[in-house]
Nucleic acid binder design. Structure first.
Lengths: 141, 141
DNA sequence: TGTGGGGCCTCCAGTCACTGGAAGGTCAAG
DNA sequence: CTTGACCTTCCAGTGACTGGAGGCCCCACA
C-alpha cells in the first residue's frame, strides 16, 4: 500500500501520516523508488492513532497507549490512569468554556444589536481596572 | 509606569504585553533609557484585552473589538455579530468535548483498571478498520 | 515513443498566542 | 562600587499539523 491508500482507509491525511512517521509513531518500509510501503499492521496502528486523537488524546498519550497496547504484560490500570487523567482535562476545558459561554451569553442578551453605538459587551470589556494592584487576581491564559 | 507595573495591574505577563506591542495591539511610548512607558489609557486597553482574551476571543477578534470600542460611530450590531460568531464556536467546541467525554467515560467505566492486561479502552481504540473505502460492497453503519 | 496527469518525495514556512531563555543595558539602594 | 531587580532585544520552542514549492516516478493513452 502506498500512502494514498492508507490515507483513504485510515481517514488520516497523507501529510499527517508522514508527520507521524517523522515523530516516530510509525515506521513504514520503503520501496526501491523511495515510496513508503505500508503493511496491514501499519494501517491498524494508524487507525488506532486516528481514534485516540479523535478522543482528544495528545500525541504523547498516543505513544503511551500504543506502547501499552503492544505490551502483553500491561495492566489495565495503567491504561485507565491515562484515560482518567485525560478525562479530567476534558472536564476542565468544558468547565472553562461553559463559564465563558455563560458570561458571553449574558452580554449578548443584553446587547440590542442595532444601529446605535451603545453596547453592554464593550462596556463590560472596558470595565475599570480594580485599584488594588497588590492583591492578585489570576486570569486565564 | 514601566512594564512590570502594568503587568501587575493588568494581570498580564510582561512577555505578553511585549508581544501585544509587537503585533500592534498597543503602542506604548518609550523613555530615554529605551524602557516602555505606559499611560493609563494603555493600561485600560490591556485590561480590555485581558478580559476579551479571558472570554476566548481571538487576537484578531480583539483587534476588531478595540477598533469598535474606539469608533464612536459603531453600531452595537457589529459588536454583537462578533460575539455571536464567537459564541457559536464555543458551543461547537463544547459539543465536541462533551462527545469525547461521553465516549471516554463509557470506556473508563468498562475498564477494570486492575493488574490484568485486558482493557476495553485499548480494545476500542484497536477496533478493525471498516472496509468501506476499498471494497464498497459492505453495508454502511 | 512521447505526453499528460496523477501520486509520491523532501524541505521549508506558517499556524496561534504566547513562553522560556540568553546576553546585555539601567537603576536605586547599601 | 557592587548587587540585584528590572528592563531591553532576539531567537527558539510549543502542539499537531497544514500548505506549498520543486522535483521524481508511474501508468495510461495516442
Amino acid at each position: 500500500m502506498n500512502i494514498g491508500d492508507v490515507a483513504q482507509r485510515s481517514g488520516l491525511p497523507a501529510k499527517t501520516i508522514r508527520y507521524y512517521e517523522e515523530i516516530g509513531l510509525i515506521r513504514p518500509q520503503r520501496g526501491e523508488n523511495g515510496y513508503r510501503r505500508f503493511r496491514e499492521q501499519d494501517l491498524h496502528k494508524l487507525a488506532f492513532l486516528g481514534r485516540a486523537r479523535a478522543l482528544g488524546f495528545t500525541i504523547e498519550d498516543c505513544r503511551t497507549l500504543i506502547a501499552l497496547y503492544e505490551d502483553e504484560s500491561r495492566e489495565s490500570g495503567q491504561v485507565k490512569r491515562v484515560a482518567e487523567e485525560h478525562l479530567h482535562q476534558i472536564d476542565d476545558k468544558i468547565a472553562q468554556l461553559q463559564s465563558m459561554r455563560t458570561t458571553l451569553g449574558h452580554l449578548i442578551h443584553a446587547c440590542a444589536g442595532d444601529h446605535r453605538p451603545d453596547c453592554p459587551i464593550l462596556e463590560d470589556l472596558a470595565k475599570d481596572v480594580p485599584e488594588e494592584a497588590a492583591s492578585a487576581s489570576e486570569g486565564v491564559r
